[in-house]
Amino acid sequence: MPPIVSISKLDKYFGRLHVLKNISLEIPEKQVVCLIGRSGSGKSTLLRCINFLEEPSYGTVEVDGLAVHSGGKDKSYHQQIHAVRLKTGMVFQEFNLFPHMSVLENVIEGPITVKGMNKDQAIALAEKNLEHVGLLFKKDEYPMRLSGGQKQRVAIARALTMEPRVMLFDEPTSALDPELIGEVLTVMKQVADEGMTMVVVTHEMGFAHDVADRVIVMAEGELIEDGEPDAIFNHSTDPRTKALVERRPVDEGRKKK
């Protein structure tokens, strides 16, 4: 089976800082990949390069058969990026729900505005996904009235309602109070169980260990290890990996903000 995400020879600079160094990576369909690494290792940047929220400086990103070479300037390049974004759904650390829209409006916004879906159809789809994350009963609330965990579950429903081929999660639990992390991870596990291809940047080692098919360790802009969770968590010889998986680094991501 051809990979659904394929990154080749990707480099990313922030000014003079070389944050991603010649990354190549293939992700098969339905795989759940966790990207782990210390803050500043480049894992979030790599994730954001997949849907071009960060533009790679060099290299190629291919999603579901659509290859985009970095550095384009013309209209077709932007159309390609747009097409890639339609194939990917993203969940952010800070949720980024639209505060001026109700929960339901947040979820139907994409299908209606971007895909031109008619409203009834969008509502049916949105309600199905809200039900899925257990928040249909909150559909008329505004995000301000939700807990962090609820906000993140709505954000997941919003991304799923675009029916993406790949879901990208950027530290989805790092901004949450510890007691709210579980409900979000449960929903993510559920999405994984349904066969969604997922790329998850996380500090939740428990989730990476239990749910991921594959764990990739990043350090200083490079992929230093790549393997099954058991190999990474129990048999790694790399001191950086060992330092990462030995402590319970639940809090690290939160400190960043």
């Binding site: 747009h82 800070e94 639209f98 675009m162």
Partner: peptide, 22 residues
């Protein structure tokens, strides 16, 4: 916030739609 623009773009909104809707 910048996150609002990113969320809209990640959904596939064009810059114009992002401005108008979000």
């Amino acid at each position: 916030g910048k996150g609002q623009r990113e969320a809209a773009m990640a959904l596939g909104m064009t810059p114009g739609q992002t401005m108008k809707r979000v």
